[in-house]
Simulated assay, not measured.
Amino acid sequence: MLNARIKLRHLQAFLEVARQHSFARAAEHLAITQPGMSKTIRELEETLGTVLFERTPRGVALTQAGLTLLRHAGPAIRALEEGVSAVGEAHVGSVWLRVGALSTVESWLLPEAIRRWQCSAQGEAGINVVGGPSAFLLSRLRRGELDLVVGRMTEAREIRDLAFEHLYYQRLLLVVRDGHPLAGVVPLAAERLQEFPWVLPPPQTTLRQQVDSFCVRHAITLPARQLETLSLPLSQQFTAHSEAIWVAPEEAVREALAEGRLRELSLPLERQGGSVGLCLNATLQPSLALAAFCETLREVASGVPEGVH
């Protein structure tokens, strides 16, 4: 039985501090004073008889007890929010899903799945899509703030106790604009890649790990001229009008490659590629809408062009 001294405000405050890694930012977000926030967390810790946060040079971090509570409190609050939303949806006929999207599926899989799902869903079907690195999105999924995360993420350590379902494999490609000095060069010596700017994923992302492994295998060092971004439109525009080498998800450049606007370099970054799939919080019971959307994702993924699986 839940301790009667633990109120909803205690759990909301706990989740916000865990999210912000700061009492001050959490207090600002919840529109309460910082002393009020500190008092709320102290009350929760006294009730539980344990310390939930510890101070670090970068703010506050969860203790082991705090991590344990987070695994349960986040989904519990999310389930409560879903219940309240379901009551409202019964009156207005609306359905909303919160989806975390990695850049590897923003060009084709996710847009096509959303289109099909909205065409088949009963009533008004809305989807809120949140982008970002896998670590950020998976942490939000674990806290119950997202319904699912879609993308290439099998290398992500943050998956841990989440449920990942493989859909297909997707490679990272080294691509350049048509007319680039390295376009069509066969064989291509790896050291020549150091002569040009690179467009690549930011550090601490699973995609960047593949780039780093490639550089180690070929004993090369990336040049200082780098553009680090997960933005596909920015990457494509920059590559199209520069001498840059872009580390691109295959899905994002398939059309441009077919039309000859971009060219894949003859030196492959990776052979098979990483596993693209969907990740769910196993502690939450999926709604009918979420189950239907996941089935739509599987249906769309089954149509991935030959050679990508």
Rank of each mutant, 00 (worst) to 15 (best):
A291L: 10
S266T: 10
Q237I: 08
A219R: 15
L67D: 07
E295Y: 01
Q272T: 09
L48T: 08
A252I: 11
E255C: 03
H166K: 14
G273Q: 04
A189L: 11
V60G: 01
V211F: 11
R208F: 11
E264C: 08
A244F: 07
K39A: 06
L137G: 06
E46S: 15
Q118Y: 02
E259P: 00
R225C: 07
P249V: 05
A4R: 13
V95Q: 12
V17S: 04
L193D: 01
A31E: 08
P223W: 07
A244Y: 06
T40F: 00
G307E: 05
T221K: 00
V84R: 09
P233G: 08
P75E: 09
I127E: 02
V186M: 08
G49H: 04
Q12H: 12
A73Y: 05
P75L: 10
G151W: 03
G132R: 12
V17F: 03
P268R: 04
F196G: 06
V87T: 01
L52D: 00
A86S: 11
A256W: 03
E251Q: 08
T206S: 11
I41D: 02
T56V: 15
H218N: 10
S235H: 02
V186R: 14
Q237W: 08
G74I: 05
T33N: 11
P305V: 04
L257P: 04
V149N: 06
V51Q: 13
P111R: 06
L230S: 05
G273D: 05
G260M: 03
S94V: 14
R55M: 01
A252N: 13
R217A: 12
S275T: 09
D178S: 13
R142W: 06
V150Q: 00
L278C: 11
P202Q: 12
Q237A: 14
R78S: 15
G74A: 07
R42I: 02
S134T: 06
E46R: 15
M153D: 02
G151S: 07
L62E: 04
L102P: 09
A256K: 11
P233A: 09
L109F: 12
R9Y: 01
V276E: 03
T47L: 04
I245N: 00
A189C: 01
I159S: 02
L110P: 05
L257C: 03
A292E: 15
V87S: 03
L146N: 06
A73T: 14
S22L: 05
H21K: 14
G36Q: 11
R298I: 08
I127A: 01
L67K: 13
R115M: 01
V105F: 08
T40Q: 13
A240H: 09
A252L: 10
L44R: 09
V87D: 00
C215L: 13
F214S: 07
R55G: 00
T229S: 11
L297C: 02
L232R: 05
D161I: 02
F293T: 04
W246I: 08
T205Q: 13
P133F: 04
V300S: 04
S139G: 05
V276R: 04
G179A: 12
D178K: 09
F53C: 02
A73V: 15
R152S: 13
A240S: 15
R217K: 13
E228H: 02
R208W: 07
N3G: 11
A301S: 09
Q204F: 09
W246F: 15
H241K: 07
L288P: 01
F293H: 04
Q285K: 11
A125Q: 05
E158G: 01
G274Q: 10
